[in-house]
């Protein structure tokens, strides 16, 4: 019986979407920690961002299922990049979460499907906005790890 192999492009798309989904799972978990150390307007912002990641997660899961893929499941718990003991630490964690999600969406932007590429670009923009808000400043190349691109100063 002949087996049908998935086309390489589809495999790349699924891989990129799964990576983004894994990052979204981590962000949803991480924002639970972020919110625990915030209050007032910052907590409201964290809650809004948490919901945004849940929505993105659900979108990714739907896209994967429609492509015949089993979405990667969330882990029971995640190791945080650093310990959080304060609101400042919580905001720093939010920045890290958003940066990691942005990097994952850069992978989605690299696929050849126009629809998926545009989805990745939209989500990259959204996560860059959230990161800038938590960071308190903008960066030149959201999603690219620091130093990955030479940045001019002037």
């Amino acid at each position: 019986m002949a087996r049908t192999r998935p086309r390489p492009a589809a495999a790349n798309e699924a891989s990129a979407l799964q990576a983004a989904l894994a990052a979204e799972h981590a962000a949803v978990y991480g924002y639970g920690v972020v919110g625990a150390y915030l209050s007032g307007a910052a907590l409201t912002a964290a809650t809004s961002d948490w919901v945004a990641h849940e929505v993105a997660r659900d979108s990714l899961e739907a896209m994967l299922r429609s492509a015949g893929q089993q979405p990667v499941a969330a882990a029971v718990a995640y190791r945080l990049p650093h310990r959080v003991h304060s609101s400042a630490g919580a905001m720093s964690l939010a920045v890290t979460l958003e940066d990691r999600v942005a990097t994952a969406y850069l992978g989605v932007v690299a696929v050849t499907s126009t629809r998926i590429r545009e989805f990745g670009a939209r989500e990259l923009l959204a996560t860059a906005m959230r990161a800038a808000s938590w960071r308190g400043r903008t960066v030149a190349f959201p999603g690219f790890p620091a130093g990955a691109l030479h940045t001019a100063r002037g």
Partner: peptide
């Protein structure tokens, strides 16, 4: 996409 995201911020 990254530049566009930066411009949006």
């Amino acid at each position: 996409a990254s530049v566009a995201a930066s411009e949006a911020t």
